[in-house]
Design a protein around this nucleic acid. Sequence first.
DNA 1: GGGTTATTCAACCGATTGGTTGAAGATGTG
DNA 2: CACATCTTCAACCAATCGGTTGAATAACCC
Lengths: 120, 120
Amino acid sequence: MANDRLSRVFSALADPTRRDIVARLAAGDATVNELAEPYDVTVQAVSKHIRVLEDAGLISRSRDAQRRPCRLEGEVFDLMTKWIERYRREAEDRFRQLDAVLEQMEEQPVTGTPAKEAAS
Amino acid sequence: MANDRLSRVFSALADPTRRDIVARLAAGDATVNELAEPYDVTVQAVSKHIRVLEDAGLISRSRDAQRRPCRLEGEVFDLMTKWIERYRREAEDRFRQLDAVLEQMEEQPVTGTPAKEAAS
DNA sequence: GGGTTATTCAACCGATTGGTTGAAGATGTG
DNA sequence: CACATCTTCAACCAATCGGTTGAATAACCC
């Protein structure tokens, strides 16, 4: 369950260590060992984190001898942004609508029809 | 662990059912029962999902008799968008830089200084 | 007050997660 | 080839997660 792309991306970014790794990769490519260095967990744990980020499509990896340098992939961010912006906009639109309704109610207070719909 | 705001938000949105709930709330407020109706899980399960969304600050709730209508909160989206946009921009900048470097390498191929920095 | 409706609490369960240790691959270097 | 380095695989563990059922709250309606 929750195997779709968006779920994997959000799930990957739900961990602060992984977000930190993303942040550091934004400054430049790095190997597993380099990425693992600042944290006080084993390099295997970081390797797992990187796997999660890779599966989510947030990073890609090449090969340089024994090293597997990680690179941040910008594309996936669009996927998130699109989802987020869509619902944020709708929420804001609704907010503006509510404001309008409240304004009108002020001008011309309750007459009849007790308003009780909205969702259904 | 992973108790900071951003972690809670990303984690909340990592579940497709919860994203669906957010999507539906973008169209208008709704009660727990109304939200639970379309899914084939118990209302308790949905209640838990809503709790998670509320703890993440993605929704707020009021009271209407026994009902607890849920409303989408737009603000939190900004938090995500800011984080995302920041690193997306950096990734894209780096991408452009790389392009420039490759271009220059084409014009004037390898001379000396074997270039081996970038991350550290 | 008694019954109904809406929601949550509590305890439990199987799967997943983030971590560990230890061994195995993969690859350059003496 | 032997060895060191970088990375992953495998097995395990405690904690969390998404779900369940059953009981408890909360508020309305007759």
